[in-house]
Nucleic acid binder design. Structure first.
Lengths: 220, 220
DNA sequence: TAGATTGTTAATCGATTAACAATC
DNA sequence: TAGATTGTTAATCGATTAACAATC
């Protein structure tokens, strides 16, 4: 049983290992991998042991092997095709988001309730929301980014869930009423900003509970 | 000592309470507040007890009192003025982000390294990055949104930290080398999407470690 | 009063860290 | 061999949940 924090950590490992590989590194050690992402080496070895990822005593870990083993755990995904619901400012920004490329995530279509936004011939076509159910079913889409105005969010969420969407990344700063069979990941930018305001007064607050970056000794 | 997860929960309480208030509610109960945000009532009462927030036995909590007490804990913030670093697609989308209004967060200026983006007369003016240090110092800005291309991210982060920024919301999908005196909140959209792909195969995975939404009994 | 709700203490559960054995 | 590193077991720490007392 793997939970969200572990998945997130595995994704971080993957990202860091790819970066190391791109630098020409062949091997990784729990120590330098930890330094790269601000996690203790013990945490990393503990994770690996939990997932039965093995390295070589003294010899560290072969980066390629490691990446393969992590992919194995996360499950080889056939496709990372997703759709965008709401072609507003945030939606348009995400269509061009460069961070998706490396992960093989592809926005294959966008949908909008405003007829003026519709553009079937665009590189990433924009269709009217009326066609969303058909599209999801025909193309077996499982994941959607929800970037519609707050007032439309719940309605659109219900629609796409009923059409078969299983996971939603929600940018609307409202609490969606959940549905069984559909997982929601909220990105609440306002809350992230607000929490920063409270944290910078670090007399009263501690940064624990986020990640453990405390152990990183400076090495300018 | 309050930590990140607690702060995030307090912010959720605040948001939910405001919503309830806007519905005309005067009182909240740990039960309905919990239902509204997918948290058990025990968790809520435990939090309140931890922060010395008190209600009335049997009578629940007065929403206005509650909001005031939460604000007290989080610390009354003088201003929520922030700047935007990187006026690209994501940056522009955030300038218009409606979720900020309710929280009193205001983007007071944007900065970009591309001279063509500069627009001093815009509603939210866009200045050249060269002026960022001056601006931060003159206006006592503490929080910045970093939405520059990956390759520029580390450089810009260093610049704004040296100019006095204490908290950064980072949209670049790279691991920033930390600085003392500056807190980073990463928003890694690609990772959020990827984790969804792994979670929808919920045979192997469990959603624990995120929030506790399990206890919510359906009530269609 | 009976029932509903708050609020606290104790128990449990899980995640991180410490200690250390194994070994290349 | 000595030193560095992996990998595991035990200890600690923190967060959530259970149980229940208090009381309106």
């Amino acid at each position: 049983m793997i939970n969200r924090t572990q998945i997130m950590r595995l994704l971080k490992y993957k990202n860091a290992l790819r970066r190391m590989k791109s630098f020409g590194f062949i091997k990784a050690y729990s120590n330098n991998l930890g330094d790269a992402i601000g996690i203790t080496s013990v945490q990393i070895r503990k994770d690996f042991s939990l997932f039965n990822i093995t390295g070589n005593k003294k010899g560290g870990y072969n980066i390629d092997d490691l990446l393969e083993q992590i992919d194995e755990i996360l499950g080889k995904q056939i496709s990372h095709n997703i759709i965008l619901v709401g072609n507003g400012k945030i939606g348009k920004a995400l269509v061009n988001y460069r961070g998706f490329e490396n992960e093989g995530i592809r926005i294959v279509a966008a949908f909008d309730s405003n007829p003026e936004e519709v553009d079937r011939d665009a590189k990433i076509p924009v269709y009217p929301v009326e066609e969303i159910k058909d599209f999801i079913e025909k193309n077996n889409i499982e994941i959607a980014i929800l970037s519609v105005p707050d007032i439309e969010a719940q309605k659109m969420f219900d629609i796409i869930c009923n059409a078969g969407i299983k996971g939603v990344l929600n940018f609307a700063p409202i609490q969606l009423l959940e549905k069984p069979n559909c997982i929601i990941n909220d990105v609440n930018i306002a809350n992230e900003i607000e929490s920063l305001f409270y944290f910078i007064n670090d007399v009263k607050y501690t940064n624990k509970g986020k990640k453990s970056k405390e152990k990183k000794e400076d090495k300018n």
